[in-house]
Design a binder for these strands. Structure first.
Length: 869
RNA sequence: GCCGGAGUGGCGGAAUUGGCAGACGCACCGGACUUAAAAUCCGGAGAUUCAUAAAAUCGUACCGGUUCGACCCCGGUCUCCGGUACCA
C-alpha cells in the first residue's frame, strides 16, 4: 500500500475495472429484489451539486443493499426531450438530437467519474425512438379508452417560449421555465383525463411511505371538496342556474349570485338589455389581462350587476346576479351563491358594492363577535339562525341536513368537486414525443396504427423560434393517410409535454431493450414497484402525481402489476451556498462566487466582511441561498473531483447534513472529508503492514482491556452504521460513528495492547463499512489488505452482540432531576437493583445528606433519579 | 390569507421510546514533531460567576403547563423556510 493517498490514480483504476468486470450489471432474477431509483436528469451536459447529492445518496443505498444480499436494480437514464436543446438549435443551428446526444455523453462520463454503481446496460433516453415508441403507444391506449381528448379551451400561453403550459407549469402567474407572465389564449389542445383518477390518487396516498409534506402537497393539489349543487331559478329565464357550494348550511344567507365572466348564461341573460355594452367591456378588459395582472388584483375584486335576479329555492328570496373576476369558469359550475356574512371573498365584494349581509350562523355569546354588525366574514362553525326550519341546529350538522332537504325537495344534490384539472399535454414544440394522432375529414381524430409506431420526428425541420410548431415546416411529416379509411389524413403537429416521458420511464428500465412491448410482464412483475425512489422535492406534485396516474391507468388495463409506482420516497434537500454581491450596472446586483472573494472572520470564526480578490473592494454578504447560476454561487463538481477526488466529494455531501435536509456548501468541510479519508488510509496502511513496532502487538495478552475496547468500538459501529443506513437513511450519523471508530483505532495505535491480527480485522471491517460511501479508496484498501473480490461482493459486516455487553455500566445519578454524578454498577440491573445500588453508594449518600429521600426512580442502563426533600 | 415543516454552541449538525444536551466534523486555541512552516499525532473548549482550580448557576426561539425527569408531550406567542393562492 502506498504511503500517500493518490485519489486520481485510484479512482481511474477502479472505475475502469468496474466497467470491464461489469460489476454493476443486474440479473432479472434471484434473491430478494430491491428496485432503487434516482430521478433521471435532464441532460444539460454538466452535473451540478444537486445531482451529485441525489446520486451519492442513491449509490450508498444501492451498494449497501447489494452487500446485504439484495438483488438490486439501480439504473440511470435521460429525461432527454425539452426546450434547452431546441433553444440551442434556434440559437446555434445545432440539431437538438446532436446537441442532446453530446450532452448525454458528457454527463454519463461525469457520472462515471463519481463512481455511481449504475447498470448502464439498461440506460434509457426519452428521445430515443425505441423509447418514445412506447410513450406513443401508452398515449394511444389512453385515447382508445377515452382518456385522451382534444378540446378548445382558454389555456395558459407563454409568449416567450411560445407554447402552452400546464396549470402545474404556471408559477405565480409566470412561466415556470422563463418567468415570463403567462397569458390566456384559446386553442385546441390534447388533454389526459387525470381527473377520472382524482379520488384514487387521493385515497392511495395513505398506503405510501412518503414524507408527509409531499403527501399533503398532493392532497391539496387534488383538492377534494364536498358540498352540494343547488339550482336557482332565474326570473324571466327558462333555465335554472346551478351553483356549487361547500356550505349548504349558509343557503339562507345568500344575498346575491355571481357568474364567472365566461359563463354560458352571461350572453343570453344580457342580450338586448341595457347591460349588454358594459358586460362586453368587462369581458374585453379581462381578455387582455395576463394571469399575473389578474391575481395581483386579488384584493380588489371587480364585478358587474347584469340586471337579472335569481330566486333562492329555500326561502324564495330574490337576489341580484353579478358577473365578477373572482369566480372561475373551470371550477365547480362556474357560478356561485354569495353569502357575505360567512365567506371572506363574498364579504369583501358585498362591502365594495354595498350589498346585503345577512348572518345565518351564530358564533355564540362567548365569541365576542357582533353578528348584526360584522367587520369581517365569520367562517367558523356555530348555530344556525335566520334559517327557518333549521334554526338552532349546529352548522356542522346543518351541512348534511340542508343537503338532505334540498335533495328531497329536488332543489339540488350533494356533490364533490376536485381542484385537479385534466392534464393539458400538447406543446407547440419540436423536441418532444410526437403525438401519434391523425386528423381525417371523414373519421375525425384517429390514432396511428400501433404497428406503425413510432411516429418518428422528421429531420427536415426549420427552427425559427417563432410561430407554430416547427413540425409544420417539415415537407414530409404532416400529410399521411387515415389509418381507418385510407383517405388523406393530417398528422398532429404538436408534441407531448415531457412529463409524459417521465411518467413511465421507470418501467422501461426493467426491460430496456424490449421491442414487443414497453416492458415484459415477467420483468415488471419481478421488479415493480420501486422500493425506494430518491429525488428533489420540486417534483412533489407534477412528476410524482403524473407517474402515479400513468401507473394506475396501466394497472387498470392489465399492463402493470402494481397501481402505485413508488413505495418509499426520499426527497433530498437543496444544496445551498453563501451569496456575495455588490451593485453593478443599472443598480442590478452583481453576484460573486465565494472563490472570488476573501473573507475575514472574527475570533469566533464568524464572517464579518468580504472583499473581492480581484480588486480588494468590499462586497455585501448575502443570504445563504440555493446554488444557482443567476447567483453565481454554484460550484462545479467536476472541478472539485479534480482537486479532491470523487470519494471526498461524495463523503462531504453525505456527511454534512441528513439527506432530506438542506445542505450548506463549505469548502472547509470538504477539506475535512479529504483529511478523514487520508486518516483512514494511514491507519489501514498501518494495520495492513503491521510493521510499526510501537504497538507491541506480539507481546500483548489476549483479551486485554485495549482489545475489548477495540472490539466494542468495532461492533458498536457496525450496529449503528447498519441501522443508520438500512432503516433510517441517516448517512451523516453513520459516517460520524465510523469516524469514532477510526478515532478508537488511533487510540489503540497510540496505547498498544492489541494483537496485529485483531487490528487487521478492525481495518477490514472499517473498509467494508465505509465502502458504500467512498467506494474507490475502499476498493484499493480492500485489495491492499489481501482481498481479491470487490467490497461490493462481500457480505455486509455483522456485529457480535456479546462484544457489546460489559460487566459494568455507568449510571447517571440525579437528585430531583439534576445531574449530580455517576456510579458504576453491574450491568443489567433492573429499576429496583439500581435504586439499591444507589442507596449503597457512599457518593450518593453524600449527595442526599440532610435530605429525606421520598422516592427513587431507576431507569435500567441509564440513570437513577432520587427525589428528596 | 390558508396548509406543511423547522428554530439546539462561532458554524454544519447529534441526542432512534420522555431519561447524562451539544456525539461527529468545521473553524479556533494549546502541546509534540520540525531549523521553520505545512502536513501529521495528542489535547482543550456551551455560557456566566471565580485570578485559577474546585464548585455552583444558567442554557435547546419566547411565555406557561404536565411529569420524579421535557430539545422531545400539551396550550399560547414570535421568527424563518417550503407549498399554495380568489377552488366557492
Amino acid at each position: 500500500m502506498k504511503e500517500r493517498y493518490e485519489f486520481s490514480e485510484i479512482e481511474t483504476k477502479w472505475q475502469r475495472r468496474w466497467d470491464d468486470e461489469g460489476l454493476f450489471k443486474t440479473e432479472d432474477a434471484g434473491g430478494d429484489k430491491f428496485y432503487l431509483l434516482e430521478m433521471f436528469p435532464y441532460p444539460s451536459g454538466k452535473l451540478h451539486m444537486g445531482h451529485v447529492r441525489n446520486y451519492s445518496i442513491g449509490d450508498v443505498a444501492a451498494r449497501y443493499l447489494r452487500m446485504t444480499g439484495k438483488n438490486v436494480l439501480h439504473p440511470m437514464g435521460w429525461d432527454a426531450f425539452g426546450l434547452p436543446a431546441e433553444n440551442a438549435a434556434i440559437k446555434h443551428g445545432i440539431h437538438p438530437d446532436i446537441w442532446t446526444r453530446e450532452h448525454i455523453e458528457a454527463m454519463r462520463a461525469q457520472l462515471k467519474t463519481l463512481g455511481i454503481s449504475y447498470d448502464w446496460d439498461r440506460e434509457v433516453s426519452a428521445c430515443d425512438p425505441g423509447f418514445y415508441k412506447w410513450t406513443q403507444w401508452i398515449f394511444v391506449q389512453f385515447f382508445k379508452h377515452g382518456l385522451a381528448y382534444k378540446k378548445k379551451n382558454p389555456v395558459n400561453w407563454c409568449p416567450s417560449c411560445e407554447t402552452v403550459l400546464a396549470n402545474e407549469q404556471v408559477v405565480e402567474g409566470n412561466c415556470e421555465r422563463c418567468g415570463t407572465a403567462v397569458v390566456k389564449k384559446s386553442l385546441e389542445q390534447w388533454y389526459l383525463a387525470i381527473t377520472e383518477y382524482a379520488q384514487r390518487l387521493l385515497d392511495d396516498l395513505d398506503g405510501l411511505h412518503w414524507p408527509q409534506n409531499v403527501k399533503t402537497m398532493q392532497q391539496n393539489w387534488i383538492g377534494r371538496s364536498t358540498g352540494a349543487d343547488v339550482d336557482f331559478a332565474i326570473e324571466g329565464f327558462g333555465e335554472k342556474l346551478r351553483i356549487f357550494t361547500t356550505r349548504p348550511d349558509t343557503l339562507f344567507g345568500v344575498t346575491y349570485m355571481v357568474l364567472a365572466p365566461e359563463h354560458p348564461f352571461v350572453a343570453p341573460l344580457t342580450e338586448g338589455t341595457e347591460y349588454e355594452g358594459d358586460v362586453a367591456k368587462f369581458l374585453e378588459k379581462l381578455q387582455f389581462m395576463s394571469d399575473i395582472d389578474r391575481t395581483s388584483e386579488t384584493l380588489d375584486k371587480t364585478g358587474l350587476f347584469i340586471g337579472r335576479y335569481a330566486i333562492n329555492p329555500l326561502n324564495g328570496k330574490r337576489v341580484p346576479i353579478f358577473i365578477a373576476d373572482y369566480v372561475l369558469m373551470d371550477y365547480g359550475t362556474g357560478a356561485i351563491m354569495a353569502v357575505p356574512a360567512h365567506d371572506v371573498r363574498d364579504f369583501e365584494f358585498a362591502v365594495k358594492y354595498g350589498l346585503d349581509i345577512v348572518p345565518v350562523i351564530d358564533p355564540g355569546p362567548d365569541s365576542g363577535i357582533d353578528i348584526t354588525n360584522l367587520d369581517a366574514a365569520f367562517v367558523a362553525d356555530g348555530k344556525m339562525i335566520n334559517s327557518g326550519r333549521f334554526d338552532g341546529m349546529d352548522s356542522r350538522e346543518g351541512i348534511e341536513a340542508v343537503t338532505a332537504y334540498i335533495e328531497e325537495q329536488g332543489y339540488g344534490v350533494g356533490s364533490i368537486n376536485f381542484r385537479l384539472r385534466d392534464w393539458l399535454i400538447s406543446r407547440q414544440r419540436y423536441w418532444g414525443t410526437p403525438i401519434p394522432m391523425i386528423y381525417c375529414e371523414a373519421c375525425g381524430w384517429v390514432a396511428e396504427k400501433e404497428e406503425n409506431l413510432p411516429v418518428v420526428l422528421p429531420t427536415d425541420v426549420v427552427f425559427k423560434g417563432k410561430g407554430e410548431s416547427p413540425l409544420t415546416t417539415s415537407a414530409t411529416f404532416r400529410n399521411t393517410e387515415c389509418p381507418v379509411c385510407g383517405g388523406p389524413g393530417e398528422r398532429e403537429i404538436d408534441t407531448m409535454d415531457t412529463f409524459l416521458d417521465s411518467s413511465w420511464y421507470f418501467m422501461r428500465y426493467t426491460d430496456a431493450h424490449n421491442d414487443e412491448c414497453f416492458a415484459g410482464a415477467d420483468k415488471l412483475k419481478h421488479w415493480m414497484p420501486i422500493d425506494q425512489y430518491i429525488g428533489g422535492v420540486e417534483h412533489a406534485i407534477l412528476h410524482l402525481l403524473y407517474a402515479r396516474f400513468f401507473t394506475k391507468f396501466l394497472y387498470d388495463k392489465g399492463y402493470s402489476p402494481v397501481d402505485e409506482p413508488f413505495t418509499r420516497l426520499l426527497t433530498q434537500g437543496m444544496v445551498l451556498a453563501e451569496t456575495f454581491y455588490r451593485d453593478g450596472e443599472g443598480g442590478r446586483p452583481q453576484w460573486y462566487n465565494f472563490s472570488e472573494v476573501d473573507l475575514s472572520r472574527d475570533e469566533q470564526g464568524r464572517i464579518v466582511s468580504a472583499v473581492l480578490k480581484e480588486d480588494g473592494q468590499p462586497v455585501t454578504i448575502g443570504k445563504v441561498e440555493k446554488m444557482a447560476k443567476s447567483k453565481n454561487n454554484g460550484v462545479d463538481p467536476e472541478e472539485l473531483i479534480g482537486k479532491y477526488g470523487a470519494d471526498t466529494l461524495r463523503l462531504f455531501v453525505l456527511f454534512a447534513s441528513p439527506p432530506e435536509k438542506e445542505l450548506e456548501w463549505s469548502e472547509a468541510g470538504l477539506e475535512g472529508s479529504y483529511r478523514f479519508i487520508n486518516r483512514v488510509w494511514r491507519i489501514v496502511r498501518w494495520a495492513a503492514e503491521g510493521t510499526d513496532g510501537q504497538q507491541g502487538a506480539q507481546h500483548s495478552a489476549l483479551d486485554s482491556d485495549a482489545e475489548k475496547e477495540l472490539l466494542y468500538a468495532m461492533n458498536a459501529t457496525i450496529k449503528k452504521t447498519t441501522a443508520d443506513i438500512g432503516t433510517r437513511y441517516n448517512f451523516n450519523t453513520a459516517i460520524s460513528s465510523i469516524m469514532e471508530f477510526v478515532n478508537a483505532m488511533y487510540k489503540v495505535r497510540e496505547g498498544g495492547g492489541v494483537r496485529s491480527e485483531l487490528m487487521r480485522e478492525a481495518a477490514e471491517k472499517l473498509v467494508l463499512l465505509l465502502s458504500p460511501f467512498v467506494p474507490h479508496v475502499c476498493a484499493e484498501m480492500w485489495e491492499a489488505l489481501g482481498n481479491v473480490q470487490s467490497p461490493l461482493l462481500e457480505a455486509w459486516p455483522v456485529y457480535d452482540e456479546t462484544a457489546l455487553v460489559s460487566e459494568t455500566e455507568d449510571i447517571a445519578v440525579q437528585v430531583n432531576g439534576k445531574l449530580r454524578g455517576k456510579i458504576v454498577v453491574a450491568s443489567g440491573l433492573d429499576a429496583q437493583g439500581l435504586a439499591d445500588a444507589a442507596a449503597a453508594s457512599d457518593e450518593v449518600r453524600a449527595m442526599t445528606e440532610g435530605l429525606t429521600v421520598v422516592k427513587v426512580i431507576g431507569v435500567p442502563g441509564r440513570l437513577v433519579n432520587i427525589v428528596a426533600k
